[in-house]
Design a protein around this nucleic acid. Structure first.
Length: 487
RNA sequence: GCGAAGUUAGUCUAGUUGGCAUGACGUCAGCUUCCCAAGCUGAAGAUCACGUGUUCAAAUCACGUACUUCGCACCA
């Protein structure tokens, strides 16, 4: 009987095994929202990224770049982050409580406020309407803006620059160059995986809400006039997707989703189909997932159509991927501010391409996979992490049945044969059952055991993690077994 | 940032009229064991989150700081 485990148990598991843990932990001035991946976590993350490359990047012939994490102020003037990525806030003089000014005014006066008014305007409205701190009824300080970007100073003059709050901006900035040198044709996909930084007011829940986090973003540049004539869309037209609209989750094929206008066009449906196939391969329970169509007021201001890929976990629905049809907002902004030419010719059309974005939160994805894979296997008295073999941090265990009569030496020999091609773990200590359990807990799918028969006929047993069954194969066949069973 | 609760070895935990810390699991070594967390022996591991104060004496009392968890706003 397999029992699922909740957030706290997954968290304890991750800490205990060193998948991830708080950064700067031994110092009292450490800040929340910074976490590190330990040895197992790094392997797991790398395997996840490799799957992303395999199933999205290479499959869809997308180009990958690796941009700067520090970007100049102009980039974020163009992108709108300097004005839009900042919340207008106001602080109470006495109790120091912080509120969103626009929301406070809207609540007290019924005036419909936006977050983009001038600070002066907010200040006037606070004074005119005699608004006081809702908590202690005292006066407010002047309104200010809290920008969620980390601002840094470059060089001796401390020139203002920012840690990127999303990885996609370098893709937009680089687009004209990339399109030319890579002999681009629309649709043209560029991807990037790396760190992004946001100065969250209150980071919470370990790697689910970080100030420094991994994003894997794909930006597809396309011709807006050809959104229903994507030739490769036949690859996914029958893929079953789960779309959440008007508070219900509808299960249908990509083709049906477009025909019923649930998804606006085949172009978006194609990528939602690809993403569905990708996440199915991560081992996430797809019955607990949905693409939620965002309503008008939930969408980012630049997005014409947005779907969030969400996964149900023990802490509720988690947003793993934001899919946004960003139109040509970003490219036009960068074109206008930089004076760079962003228009391209797509057959007879001279256009500034539109952008469809698949913005994936890597850390959250890793957590969701862990939570959906970690089970308490009561009957077998073990913790079982049933990761897909290609995601497992340790791919194969190499164990001696006993440590005597030459078994240890034989085991070491087999281990050194395979350790360069596979992430392997060698262990002689304690009883065999304990060693099996330890590897089950970190998701190792295969375990080679060297026993007395090995010495006689050059065979070993391979134990399968999930059902604990063993097969016996020749030592000479071990490598091909491990290779063919990866996927 | 605000409010509430919490912080004792890698993990969980005992300690509640103030007297330098209990147990378990895990880890390591050895013995045993021809396949699934057994057993035996031994070892390492805690200036009780950090700082200041009260006291002859602080894990224990007071104050402050940090972090964690839960609620509010923001969000991949």
């Amino acid at each position: 009987m397999l029992i699922i485990m909740d957030y706290n148990e997954v968290m304890n598991f991750a800490l205990k095994k060193g998948f991830y843990f708080p950064s700067c932990d031994i110092y009292p001035d450490k800040s929340a929202g910074f976490w590190e991946y330990g040895p197992l976590g790094v392997n797991f993350k790398n395997n996840f990224i490799e799957l992303w490359r395999r199933e999205l990047i290479r499959r869809d012939e997308i180009l990958e770049i690796d941009g700067s994490q520090i970007m100049s102020k102009s980039v974020f003037e163009a992108s709108g982050h300097i004005t839009n990525f900042a919340d207008p806030i106001i602080k109470c003089k006495k109790c120091n409580s912080t509120f969103r000014v626009d929301e406070l005014i809207a609540a007290k006066t019924k005036i419909n406020m936006t977050e983009n008014e001038s600070l002066q305007k907010y200040d006037e409205l606070i004074k005119e309407n005699d608004i006081h701190c809702p908590k202690c009824e005292n006066e407010f300080l002047k309104p200010s803006r809290f920008n969620m970007m980390f601002c840094i100073g470059i060089g001796p003059e401390n020139e203002t620059a920012y840690l990127r709050p999303e990885t996609c901006q370098s893709i937009f900035v680089d687009f004209p160059r990339l399109f030319k040198i890579m002999r681009g044709k629309l649709p043209f996909g560029v991807a990037q995986i790396g760190k992004s930084f946001r100065n969250e007011i209150a980071p919470r829940q370990s790697i689910l809400r970080l100030r420094e986090f991994y994003q894997a973003e794909i930006e597809i540049f396309c011709n807006p006039n050809k959104l229903n004539s994507l030739t490769k869309s036949s690859q996914i037209s029958n893929t079953i997707i789960r779309i959440h609209v008007d508070n219900t989750t509808k299960i249908m094929s990509c083709k049906e989703a477009v025909n019923s206008k649930t998804i606006p066009n085949m172009f978006i449906a194609y990528y939602i189909g690809l993403l569905t196939e990708f996440y199915a391969k991560t081992g996430i329970d797809m019955a607990k997932t949905r693409f939620r169509k965002l309503s008008e007021n939930e969408k980012a201001f630049y997005s014409e159509s947005s779907f969030d890929f969400e996964v149900k976990t023990t802490v509720g629905w988690l947003e793993l991927v934001a899919c946004n049809y960003r139109t040509n907002y970003d490219l036009i902004r960068h074109a206008n501010i930089s004076k760079e030419n962003y228009s391209i010719v797509d057959y007879e059309d001279k256009i500034i391409p539109h952008v469809f974005e698949i913005s994936m939160g890597v850390d959250r994805s890793l957590y969701s996979i862990l939570e959906h894979s970690l089970k308490n296997d009561i009957g077998n008295k073990r913790i079982l992490l049933s990761l897909k073999p290609y995601l497992s941090p340790i791919y194969v265990g190499v164990l001696s049945l006993l440590k005597k009569d030459g078994l240890e030496e034989k085991t070491n020999q087999i281990y050194s044969q395979i350790k360069k091609n596979f992430v392997a773990s060698l262990d002689h200590s304690g009883t065999i059952g304990r060693r099996y359990r330890r590897l089950d807990e970190i998701g190792t799918p295969f375990i080679i055991t060297i026993d007395y028969q090995t010495l006689k006929d050059q065979t070993v047993t391979i134990r399968m993690r999930d059902d604990m069954h063993q097969i016996r194969i020749k030592i000479s066949e071990v490598e091909s077994f491990l290779t063919t069973n990866a996927f």
